[in-house]
Design a protein around this nucleic acid. Sequence first.
DNA 1: TAGATTGTTAATCGATTAACAATC
DNA 2: TAGATTGTTAATCGATTAACAATC
Lengths: 227, 227
Amino acid sequence: MPNLTGQDEREEISHAIPYPTIRRMPAYHRYLKGLQSDGLAMVSCTRIAESLDLEPIQVRKDLAMTGTVGRPRIGYPVDALIGAIETVLGWDRWSEAFLVGAGNLGSAILGYRAFKAIGLNIVAAFDIDPRRVGKMIHDVPVLAMEKLANLARRMKIRIGVITVPAEAAEDAAKALVRGGIEAIWNFSPLALTGLHVGKDVIIENVSLASSLAVLIRRLGQTKAAQP
Amino acid sequence: MPNLTGQDEREEISHAIPYPTIRRMPAYHRYLKGLQSDGLAMVSCTRIAESLDLEPIQVRKDLAMTGTVGRPRIGYPVDALIGAIETVLGWDRWSEAFLVGAGNLGSAILGYRAFKAIGLNIVAAFDIDPRRVGKMIHDVPVLAMEKLANLARRMKIRIGVITVPAEAAEDAAKALVRGGIEAIWNFSPLALTGLHVGKDVIIENVSLASSLAVLIRRLGQTKAAQP
DNA sequence: TAGATTGTTAATCGATTAACAATC
DNA sequence: TAGATTGTTAATCGATTAACAATC
């Protein structure tokens, strides 16, 4: 029965790939790139699983989401797989971004060349500290915060990266939103929410504290296990 | 019936808190600290949920894992909750750590004061670049890589932080393992596995690419949804 | 051919969400 | 007291894992 309302039509193109799968995709991509440069044309999920510490069945399920078909006994075509992953993750389309906070962390992100191959192209950095303004960091100019909003609108920037201390995070986010930015990649320890920036802004909080909490927990359990 | 074998006794002290809950704990902690400094004594899960963009029932379940009991109509005691979370996460016991790679990212981590309150105390940094050796970064000395293993054993260091480029990650990990380190917090783009360092070393990979992949995916879906 | 590997359907597992009685 | 909030048991949801036929 056709949907006559036109109201809740969802994009079937997305195939609704689960987020856990999305998160594993970059690791597959990196591994496959290695095989490619070694000249390997085909690879089995067993092999991938072994190298990446995953279950073969999980790799098979994940790869199936990309639409690439493998051949029994032979495996999957490496080149096709790489291309399919890049498409699924949207790495084929460049995403230009602004970065706020040109300190150590910001510089590290700017120098992280891998991002360029991964669909993130940071074209300008911003800082409130006048001593940093005017500099170039890894070929990216550092500009004054006042210029952010107008420039973002003019350049139609969609992604903002926040690498400022917790106290400055909310202001940074608001400046980005004023510039019409649609998604924020937040490295500050303050977890941003819809309350800070409005509901329609996509927020991805990189919580180092969460990651560390898991590490210390696992360490504690090991210790407890051995009397 | 009592377990007479003594073989598969598991530590019941851990209460098997699920990892998703562990990951949310730091956010609760940070929020509660804010309330505490505002002088609030009690807080309801409804309120916490609203501020952190979670469901009240999830907050209730998470807080229950800490063993803190709330009072109907009133809420949970803020001070007790903070203490309970710190205990659950092991933040009461300091964890001394070594860091490998004193570049931009390493400096950012060293300067991230929040970690000190969070159970991670980086006591020394190491680098292969002789120009960096001998310096102090945020009060932490940068030493030569050759000194790592011996010093780690002598100081009984359990945690290693890797902030080197992908090419150097495996060597850094191996140096840490030679020093008897039990857990590795890896910021390099190369996902480390048991194959690199042996099965009994705990590895926590911070994959920025995974996080970015999710962000770009969500951004793409938004775009697709609006025709 | 024999057998390793894929693709798919079903079973399991674990976390999230719902429901509701107990309680302050 | 009335009603908001907790604590707990049950239902739902979604991802992982298992099983196995199809296939090269």
